[in-house]
């Protein structure tokens, strides 16, 4: 039995790493994931590339395009994860847009998630109001549909948090994913709202890329999520990126240890 999302929060503050599947190829993605686990990542979000990722900044947009050009498909990603499972039982989640999941068929998609041990999905274009159409199917296969809250959520935070599954993804900033020099949102008050409504773990993502930011955010929540900074290393070094990704993830994880 593979570990679930909840297990990712068993050992103090969680470091959650995102990587786009298939950039530059799926064999490399598998290697990157194993290196990130070795470097201390507690949960990996495997990005299913989409032709039109409207919540992503330029770094992940370009990774999606490279991955699709390289022939990455939903089926091949499942095959890669099945292979990966021979080498690790670490918690895994998918992050991707609704259409590839919808088109694959909710039943087929979530049953394959269960089969390969992916215990959650994060779908940025599936808000609370629309979640109902797939969360029941996902639940029947033991897969969590992770909810997001944003700086604009205000009074919605409590409603969303009260029904959160797995963990709650706290969007740190307005706009799209990508590295930011400064996070100006009042995260502390968002966290206060969340804690009032739910005891599900909360992790902060969007914009985090330095160890200092990671530590600052980890003090406020149960974990931090880093995507673009890792994807950028994969873009820079391609198939040779593994040691660079290892080093970066280790540095980031070390910054939040013991907080």
């Amino acid at each position: 039995m593979s570990k679930t999302i909840k297990n990712a929060f068993d050992h103090g503050k969680a470091f959650i790493a995102f990587i786009t599947a298939g950039d530059p190829d799926l064999e490399s993605t598998k290697r990157f994931i194993l290196e990130m686990e070795r470097a201390g990542a507690d949960l990996i979000e495997i990005g299913i590339p989409f032709s039109d990722p409207i919540a992503e900044g330029i770094v992940i947009q370009e990774a999606d395009i490279r991955a699709l050009k390289a022939g990455t498909t939903t089926d091949r990603i499942f095959d890669m994860v099945a292979e990966l499972r021979k080498e690790t039982d670490m918690p895994l989640a998918f992050m991707g847009y609704l259409n590839p999941v919808f088109y694959y068929g909710y039943d087929r998609f979530f049953s394959r998630c269960r089969d390969v041990g992916v215990s959650g999905v994060i779908i940025p274009d599936l808000p609370y109001e629309e979640k109902g159409e797939c969360s029941k199917v996902a639940a029947s296969y033991g897969v969590d549909v992770v909810s997001l809250v944003a700086p604009t959520s205000k009074e919605r935070i409590r409603t969303i948090a009260s029904e959160a599954e797995g963990f709650l993804y706290v969007v740190s900033s307005m706009g799209v994913t990508g590295m930011r020099s400064e996070i100006t949102t009042d995260i502390a008050s968002m966290m206060h709202e969340i804690r009032e409504a739910s005891d599900v773990p909360a992790a902060i993502g969007f914009g985090i890329n330095t160890p200092e930011q990671a530590a600052e955010m980890a003090r406020l929540a149960d974990g931090v999520i880093v995507g673009s900074a890792i994807v950028k290393i994969a873009a820079q070094y391609g198939a040779e990126a593994a040691p660079h990704i290892y080093e970066y993830v280790k540095k980031m994880k070390d910054a939040i240890r013991g907080l």
């Binding site: 409207i54 109001e129 629309e130 604009t152 205000k154 969007v171």
Partner: peptide, 18 residues
């Protein structure tokens, strides 16, 4: 809300919902 039969809806990031 905002359905025409099975079609329509509000499939957007949470940031835009409010």
């Amino acid at each position: 809300r905002g359905r025409f039969g099975a079609f329509g809806g509000q499939y957007v990031p949470e940031t835009l919902m409010n």
